[in-house]
Design a protein around this nucleic acid. Structure first.
Lengths: 206, 206
DNA sequence: CTTTGCATTAACAATTTTGTTAAACATTTA
DNA sequence: TAAATGTTTAACAAAATTGTTAATGCAAAG
């Protein structure tokens, strides 16, 4: 009984690894089965097709990615500048924990846009409401001279860019960075601080 | 004679489109041949294998990508702040002209790191020299109070992030942006200005 | 004009990858 | 323990994809 759970689970774990790393097209069901230590007939027994196995992975990943992006818009109860700072910080931490996720999601959406259209648009609508409130807060804070007037969507793009790109492009950037990325822990700390500093300067009244 | 040139060229054009859009794994030689309007035997006749056809594309793309990143480090003859501004601007323009390129290169390097190791490290060394000079200039300008002291590699990562991410993640971001991205020309103009403003504020003495 | 050499095609072959099946095996339940 | 149910395996089948070949066409050079 726990053996069934076990094999199914083993396949899921191996599949997640393979799909996240190589994408749908690059992943091989035989390779997943091998990594999970089962025959590849077992994979088809539990999940029928590669497609269905993939869906199990991608749906979950899409959800946590969306959730983290909402979280990046910060805790509404905080004062606006604090809220933005905290949003960047928690989003950065999430990406550190899931460094392969953004690239996976982006590639997936690009290769099969139709599949995610509905789910994606739903997230879009949720985000839209949050934007509106946040924009209002920003406008008011700007009027009070507490921060710079700025378009919240533009700000959001900047935050996503700074927090995500490093990880999406890690193997590309790393050889161009010499010592800088050698010590991972240290780099992550510095990078997080840099992203926050960059955005804070962008929104601070000059 | 020009017919040979023609078919070979047609295949290359179709292959570039297919590979950039779908990656090596997702691309199909039959689909490339079809798009080029030739039999797929012709593809093998001119390029022998999918692998070799791919190399023709990827080598060129890797080179222009590297070149554009070097250009992002700006024209050394300019005063430092101007130099950085101009670097961002020209890099952004390049990415606008080649929006699919970064994602293609990143995915390619991730799926076959060994292949690019040498080429990549060579670029790394060139960049390293430029960093050193640029860092010296920044340090001096900072001492004169013209700008903020900042690590040039960190600055470079920020510039790449802001300029590239929007395009890498376009289909992912677009549904989250409502009206903002609807008018492409307008969005690009605003985005470029935003990136420059963000970096300028980051390096300006407070 | 005919030989030479490249270009082209259609049919075929090989390989890789995914998916199926029937039989053996194990486990639970009555 | 016997029936029922679910699990596992090995061998096989199907499909998709890449790669080859032999025959044909065609244009230029001798």
């Amino acid at each position: 009984m726990s053996d069934k759970q076990n094999k199914e689970q083993l396949i899921l774990v191996a599949a997640e690894q393979e799909f996240l790393c190589k994408g749908y097209d690059g992943a091989r069901t035989t390779s997943i089965a091998k990594a999970a230590g089962v025959t590849h007939a077992m994979l088809h027994y539990y999940f029928r097709t590669k497609e269905q196995l993939f869906e199990r992975i991608v749906d979950e990943k899409f959800k946590i990615m969306s959730k983290s992006m909402l979280a990046a818009l910060g805790e509404p109860s905080l004062p606006i500048v604090e809220r933005i700072k905290e949003g960047i910080s928690s989003h950065f931490d999430f990406i550190v924990q899931n460094p392969d996720l953004p690239r996976f999601i982006i590639n997936e959406i690009i290769s099969r846009p139709e599949r995610y259209k509905i789910l994606h648009e739903r997230v879009g609508k949720i985000v839209d409401t949050i934007y509106k409130n946040l924009q209002k807060e920003i406008d008011e804070a700007a009027k009070r001279g507490e921060m710079e007037q700025i378009n919240v969507k533009m700000l959001f793009i900047s935050i996503m860019s700074l927090n995500i790109f490093t990880f999406v492009a890690y193997p590309f950037m790393q050889p161009l960075m010499g010592e800088l990325m050698r010590n991972r822990e240290e780099f992550l700390t510095n990078r997080k601080a840099e992203n926050i500093e960059t955005i804070m300067r962008r929104i601070k009244k000059q």
